[in-house]
C-alpha cells in the first residue's frame, strides 16, 4: 500500500502537509489545536518548482533499502507492508536517508531521528493526506502485499 502523487492535479496548496502533521504525534487530526498549541511536523514533504509540484510520498518498497540498511533495526515493516520507524530504536545516523532513492526519508533534526510516511498506521481509514487533498492529486494505491 502506498500513496501516489499525481502532479498533473497537484495545486501545491500544502493541505497534505498540514493534515499529515496534525495526524501524528498525538494531535489526532485536530488541525486547529495542533497548530495553535504545538509545532506539528509533517511526514511527507511537498516538492516542486514554478513548473511543477508533488507530494514526495513513501513507496513502501518491497525490497526497501532503508529497512535493509538500518544499523539499529529501527526501520521496520509491519505485517501490512507499511515501512515505519520505531522511534525507541532510531539513533539518527541517517543511513536510511542516504539509502532512500526517492529522498523521502529525511532527518528530524529536533529529535536527532528520522521521519517518514507511516500511512497513518495509528488510525483507521485512509491516510490524512489523501483524505484531505482538495483536488484528487493523491491516491491510495492498494497492491497485493508480499508479507514474507
Amino acid at each position: 500500500m502506498k500513496v501516489v502523487a499525481l502532479p498533473e492535479y497537484c495545486l501545491g496548496c500544502g493541505l497534505c502537509e498540514i493534515y499529515c502533521a496534525a495526524q501524528h504525534d498525538g494531535w489526532n487530526g485536530n488541525v486547529l489545536k495542533a497548530f495553535k498549541k504545538g509545532k506539528p511536523v509533517n511526514r511527507s514533504q511537498l516538492m516542486g518548482s514554478s513548473q511543477w509540484c508533488w507530494l514526495n510520498t513513501c513507496m513502501h518498497c518491497t525490497d526497501a533499502p532503508c529497512v535493509n540498511g538500518c544499523i539499529s533495526g529501527a526501520m521496520q515493516r509491519d505485517p501490512d507492508g507499511t515501512v515505519y520507524v520505531d522511534t525507541e530504536r532510531c539513533v539518527g545516523c541517517f543511513t536510511c536517508v542516504m539509502l532512500c532513492p526517492y529522498g523521502h526519508v529525511r532527518p528530524w533534526q529536533e529529535k536527532h531521528q528520522v521521519i517518514k510516511c507511516d500511512l497513518c498506521r495509528d488510525q483507521k481509514g485512509i491516510p490524512a493526506c489523501v483524505a484531505n487533498c482538495p483536488n484528487g492529486a493523491l491516491q491510495l494505491l492498494v497492491e497485493e502485499v508480499d508479507a514474507g
Binding site: V97, M98, L99, P101, Y102, G103, H104, R106
Partner: peptide, 10 residues
C-alpha cells in the same frame, strides 16, 4: 546536507 544524499547515492 543528509536530505540530498538518497538520490545522489542511487
Amino acid at each position: 546536507l543528509p536530505e540530498l544524499s538518497g538520490p545522489l547515492t542511487a
